[in-house]
Design a protein around this nucleic acid. Structure first.
Length: 422
RNA sequence: GGAAGAGUGCCCGGAAUUGGUAACGGACCGCUCUCGAAAAGCGGCGCGCGCAAGCGCUUGUGGGUUCGAGUCCCACCUCUUCCGCCA
């Protein structure tokens, strides 16, 4: 959410932002609606002031006749106020709907572009894996090694269903354990968060209203989170933080649910795109300064790069273009891992910062040195998602005999340096 | 799921004639005093409109009654206690 005052004063900048993000919002209409809103409110406030003034007179008037006369007068005024309220109702509805569409301003450094194909590669690490044998894809390898069962996954869940079995399940736990150790050592506080949340939390993070068709909803009108960022941000909603608490660094773990409604034809095979998965997420709340946001943004992204490097998986980091960043995001980096059988990099992590776009919606504030309340800044970045990480891990580390080499940091959690057929 | 009670300002505590327009205290910030601090005193301490004076909004949420609602009515949310169910 942007401040309406900011939008009014920087209309051209906001228009450019919407254009850069390929977001369709009628800002001229918003300005017109806001004019009407302000006009009605000004009129109504005047009448309410009058009403409050006379009400005090009524309370003070002992004389019944005088009193009755004032009450009669006020009945007329009350009707006028009622009319103002009636006309304000639909105006506010449209105003709020428009306000929820207004995008945050992307950073200057965000490149122009339509989709992920226009993202800019910033760095790449490691050599693309070469094989001196005919490599297989992760579905084939995992099935052969008893690590996953896709057939029964589909039988039980349906499209995009999967089971992780045997070493597949154990490898997931190993990754969670290692990730926990790795990220907690960086100073994060661990958190296991609710995956079922009230709607307002998804509005807070900016996932609603625009991504409505990608979220699951319960019969109680609650929603399943697509990322723990939602629950962590909600945790601090309507709260005033102590400045000494900042930056807050949370490492959250949760199941994540995504309908993938817009991507029916894509990635139909394997573990790249599934309806439910687990994710460990870095979430930061910091002071309201651009420099702070930038600093922590670089930091959380680098954390995940380091984690991937410690596993030894080739990756690249891209700077997302305007068309590929979310409504609330100022800037986003994606980390993409090499997937040998697809011969391309696939997104594994996403680091973004929002300035006060989310905290304004959540009403998350802190007191600054002058004692003034300010909206905190928020950021988040994937630490590691399972099972998607398994795709690259298994395809890159497969061996000629069909087994999979286990990266050194995971060995102690798995109790083995190789996964072979059971 | 059933029954009873409760929810007050950025935070904590806590009043408001059984309808008359949110006291007060603490914490916190600033200033005065002080070598410095404590104490004390003064001011500030939620959101919006306005250059300002000032005005409007804010008692869990949303409605309703009324000239006027913290107070009365309805729905919902949350908490507490009891019953039921349960990994």
């Amino acid at each position: 959410m942007l401040d309406i005052k900011f939008i009014r004063e920087n209309l051209e900048i906001v228009k450019q932002a919407a254009q850069k993000k390929r977001i369709d919002v009628d800002l001229d209409r918003l300005m017109a609606v806001d004019d009407t809103r302000r006009e009605i409110m000004a009129r109504m406030e005047e009448r309410k002031a009058e009403q409050n003034r006379v009400s005090k007179e009524i309370a003070a008037a002992g004389d019944d006749a005088k009193r009755q006369q004032l009450i009669t007068e006020m009945q007329g005024l009350k009707a006028e106020i009622g009319k103002d309220e009636d006309s304000l109702g639909p105006v506010m509805e449209e105003w709020q709907a428009l306000m929820l569409q207004v995008p945050n301003i992307p950073d200057m450094s965000v490149p122009d572009g339509e989709s992920d194909e226009d993202n800019q590669e910033m760095k790449s690490w490691g050599d693309r894996t070469k094989f001196d044998f005919a490599p297989k894809d992760h579905v084939e390898i995992m099935t052969a090694l008893g690590m996953a069962d896709f057939e029964r996954g589909v039988k039980v869940h349906g499209f995009r269903g999967y089971y992780l079995t045997g070493a597949g399940a154990r490898l997931s736990w190993a990754i969670w354990n290692y990730a926990q150790e790795f990220f907690l050592a960086k100073g994060f506080d661990p958190m296991i968060v609710p995956a079922i949340v009230r709607k307002s939390n998804l509005y807070g993070t900016g996932h609603l209203p625009n991504e409505a068709e990608d979220v699951y909803k319960t019969q109680d009108e609650d929603y399943l989170i697509g990322t723990s960022e939602v629950s962590v941000m909600g945790y601090y909603g309507d709260e005033v933080l102590d400045k000494t608490q900042l930056p807050i660094k949370k490492l959250a773990f949760s199941p994540c649910f995504r309908r993938e409604a817009g991507s029916h034809g894509k990635d139909t095979k394997g573990l790249i795109r599934v309806h439910e998965f687990f994710k460990i997420e870095q979430v930061i709340l910091c002071e309201a300064s651009h420099e702070e946001s930038v600093k922590w943004h670089e930091w959380i992204n680098r954390n995940t790069e380091e984690f991937i490097e410690s596993l030894g998986i080739p990756y690249r980091t891209v700077l997302n273009c305007g068309g590929d960043i979310g409504q609330g995001q100022v800037k986003k980096y994606d980390i993409e891992l090499w997937v040998p059988m697809e011969e391309k990099y696939r997104e594994i992590s996403s680091a973004s910062y929002f300035h006060d776009f989310q905290t304004r919606r959540f009403n998350t504030r802190y007191r600054d040195d002058e004692g003034k309340l300010r909206y905190a800044h928020s950021l988040n970045c994937t630490a590691i998602p399972t099972p998607r990480i398994l795709v690259s891990l298994i395809e890159n580390f497969q061996q000629a005999d069909g087994s999979v080499r286990v990266p050194a940091p995971l060995q102690k959690y798995l109790g083995s340096d190789v996964i072979s057929a059971p």
